[in-house]
Amino acid sequence: MFDDLPPDLERLQTLRIWHALWVRRIDTRIAAIRQRQAEEERGRRNRPALPDWVVELGIGTGRPPVKVHAGDCHMLGTRHRAVDRDEARRLLAGGLAACGHCQPDVQLNVLDA
């Protein structure tokens, strides 16, 4: 049935050890991938919710507000802070620029700023 295997005990034991080493390597890789996937899932579940509105901050002293964005805007830079709906409306009504991509002024009905 297994005629392709060597006939002597020494070579069979060598093959068995070699294959056992490979199975151990494969099992180690499987365990690492499972752990990474579990960590990613835990990270997705524990990720804080995106804020509804965000103000982009400028560079320099006091980091003045530059632009208002929706919380999920893809054009949002790295310097920003979350704001509530009322503050976002107040900033837009006060003349702060609205992002041209997510258009928070349209979403907040602040069109005559």
Rank of each mutant, 00 (worst) to 15 (best):
M1G: 12
F2R: 15
D3S: 15
D4G: 07
P6C: 08
P6Y: 07
P6V: 07
P7N: 13
P7S: 14
D8S: 13
L9W: 08
L9H: 11
R11P: 01
R11I: 03
L12P: 02
Q13C: 12
Q13T: 09
Q13P: 01
T14E: 14
T14F: 11
T14I: 09
L15W: 08
L15D: 09
L15G: 11
L15C: 07
W18V: 07
H19S: 12
H19F: 12
H19R: 14
A20V: 05
A20H: 09
L21G: 14
W22V: 05
V23P: 00
V23A: 11
R24Y: 00
R25Y: 04
R25P: 00
I26W: 01
D27W: 01
D27L: 08
T28L: 07
R29A: 13
A31Y: 03
A32I: 09
A32T: 11
I33F: 08
I33D: 08
I33T: 11
R34F: 06
Q35L: 10
Q35D: 13
R36W: 05
Q37E: 15
A38R: 14
E40P: 01
E40S: 10
E40F: 07
E40N: 10
E41W: 10
G43H: 10
R44E: 10
R44I: 08
R44F: 10
N46E: 15
P48M: 03
P48T: 06
A49T: 12
P51H: 08
P51I: 07
D52E: 15
W53K: 00
W53V: 01
W53M: 02
V55Y: 01
L57S: 04
L57K: 03
L57I: 03
G58M: 10
I59V: 13
I59H: 12
G60S: 06
G60H: 07
G60Q: 07
T61L: 15
G62A: 03
P64L: 10
P65H: 05
K67M: 13
V68L: 06
H69V: 02
A70L: 13
G71N: 06
D72S: 08
D72L: 03
C73T: 00
H74R: 15
M75G: 09
L76Q: 02
L76T: 02
G77I: 06
G77D: 05
T78V: 14
R81T: 08
A82F: 02
A82Q: 02
D84T: 05
R85D: 11
D86S: 15
D86Q: 15
E87N: 02
E87A: 05
A88K: 01
A88P: 03
R89W: 03
R89A: 13
R90I: 01
R90K: 11
L91V: 05
L91N: 02
L92T: 05
G95L: 06
L96R: 03
L96T: 07
L96A: 05
A98V: 09
G100R: 11
G100E: 09
H101G: 07
H101T: 13
H101K: 12
H101C: 10
C102W: 02
C102S: 05
Q103D: 10
Q103Y: 08
P104V: 04
D105P: 01
D105E: 12
V106A: 13
Q107N: 08
L108A: 04
N109S: 15
V110Y: 06
V110H: 07
D112G: 14
A113Y: 05
